[in-house]
Design a protein around this nucleic acid. Structure first.
Length: 430
RNA sequence: GGAGAGGUGGCUGAGUGGUCGAAAGCGCGGGUUUGCUAAACCCGUGGCCCUUUACGGGGCCCGCAGGUUCGAAUCCUGUCCUCUCCGCCA
């Protein structure tokens, strides 16, 4: 969320930003409530002060009668305070609601536009999309020939959108994880595995909405836990409520987790295969920085994403995400879109965002500079290293051969244990 | 799952109804002394918010949320977390 003072002092800018992002938030109402809140806050504090004085005077009362009189006075003041506080609570609840609907401010260079059509291509990867001298298959067909997936069994067990990986797809998943984690480890990221569930206040702190008709989140009945949609959630929660030393920043983590998404409202959109599924494994980068360090960190995360996909010899483009497509917490976001021959188009494989202090404020993650008074909010950033499901699509479709085999990218060979994934001979299928 | 113990400032730890935002020690910052370092001694040292040009003043915060009371770190309820023992278990 944005700082209340900032919203009040920059109401016009905030309003304009909401429009650029296609969000209808009642900024004017918030400003109005803030004035109201302050007045009442001051009243409450004055009453508290008097009540405190009265309480202290009771010990010095000279007789029982005076004591009783002061008790009555104290009681009356506390009743007034209770009434005022109830009003204050109502005002604050409405403010918090509005505050939650106001997205982060946008980087001045982020392209302005209502949706992803306004996204701006800013770079391409080292690999060119291949010219196939045969009709390329999509990953579902490749997977069938190579016996890599079982979507029917996934549906039987957990419903449409779930799947089993099998045979070399499992080795590929492990290899992709190894590759990503090792690359990031060498760059100073601390590897972590995370809980696959998180408390709803952590979800909210990172800008996810655990319940409601539009939610992307599976929630656990009779608890305040939800399945995470990304390791960004638990990694962001790592510093929730903490104040850390400025000297310890930046902190860079790479988290391995499973990601669960209901994909509400996405029915019928690219539902074939692994592209849009309810569960996948993902290696995620996450960083906490000083405010002045977050822009450079975003470039670093983007560079890491590019490097990983270049090393996998997958063609991609990088887009600077338009304001309308940034979501709530991001100040600026880059997506990597890999070329997917089976679809004949680019498909999003990674996304990296600078959320500035937007998540940190709600998570209450702060830093302190030694010798200085007070604390400040850290900046948070996240970026996909590799989402296995979409990573598999890109690897399989781009490295397929005329004979139906798939060449394993150099960087994965040691972990997969072979150079090439061959079609399974008929009859040897298990 | 059952039984018990406990959550206090950066840390250790005192505090069981008022003068407690909180003893003491450690740590940290500053100073005195000192050839340098160290020791000793002295002073200072939490966060959030409101107000003030400044000096200052005020409110809230003892895991979290409620309750009792004129008054709660202290009593009551709920909740989260930690530890110990028993059971179960990968």
């Amino acid at each position: 969320m944005l700082d209340r003072k900032f919203i009040v002092e920059n109401a016009q800018l905030v309003q304009k930003n909401c429009e650029n992002r296609g969000v209808g938030a009642d900024v004017a109402r918030f400003v109005e409530l803030e004035a109201d809140r302050k007045t009442r806050q001051v009243e409450v504090e004055q009453l508290n002060r008097r009540a405190n004085e009265v309480s202290k005077s009771i010990g010095q009362a000279k007789d029982a009668q005076q004591r009783e009189a002061r008790k009555a006075e104290g009681r009356e003041i506390r009743e007034q305070v209770a009434r005022l506080n109830a009003e204050l609570d109502a005002i604050e609840a409405e403010q918090t609601f509005i505050q939650g609907t106001i997205p982060n401010m946008s980087h001045p260079d982020a392209p302005v536009g209502v949706d992803d059509k306004a996204n701006l291509e800013i770079a391409r990867g080292k690999s060119e999309p291949r010219e196939f001298d045969f009709p390329p298959l999509d990953h579902v067909e490749l997977g069938e020939r190579l016996d890599l997936f079982d979507f029917e069994a996934g549906a039987r067990v957990a419903g449409a959108g779930f799947y089993f990986l099998k045979n070399d797809a499992v080795l590929l998943e492990l290899a992709l994880q190894q590759f990503a984690v090792r690359t990031l480890l060498a760059e100073g990221f601390t590897p972590m595995t995370t809980p696959d569930l998180a408390r709803n206040d952590v979800l909210q702190g990172t800008g996810f909405i655990p319940r409601g008709p539009e939610t992307q989140i599976y929630s656990i009945e009779n608890s305040d836990l939800s399945l995470i949609a990304t390791a960004e959630i638990p990694l962001g929660g790592l510093l929730a409520g903490q104040t850390i030393d400025a000297d310890d920043l930046p902190l860079k983590f790479c988290g391995t987790s499973h990601c669960f998404r209901t994909e509400a409202g996405a029915a019928g959109r690219a539902t074939r295969g692994l592209y849009r599924v309810h569960q996948f494994t993902k290696i995620e980068m996450f960083a906490f920085t000083l405010p002045e360090g977050s822009e450079a960190m975003l470039e670093h995360l983007r560079a890491m994403e590019c490097r990983l996909f270049d090393d996998l010899e997958i063609p991609f483009r990088v887009v600077d995400t338009a304001t309308g497509d940034l979501g709530g917490p991001a100040y600026r976001k880059y997506d990597l879109e890999a070329w997917m021959p089976g679809r004949g188009e680019y498909g999003e494989v990674t996304s990296t965002s600078n959320c500035t202090d937007y998540q940190a404020r709600r998570l209450n993650a702060r830093y302190k500079i030694k010798g200085e008074k007070g604390t400040h909010f850290v900046h948070t950033l996240n970026g996909t290293a590799i989402a296995i499901s979409r990573g598999l699509i890109a690897v399989l479709e781009n490295h397929q051969q005329a004979d139906g085999s798939v060449v394993v990218p150099e960087v994965l060979r040691a972990a997969v244990g072979k150079d090439r994934i061959e079609p399974v001979a008929h009859g040897s299928k298990q």
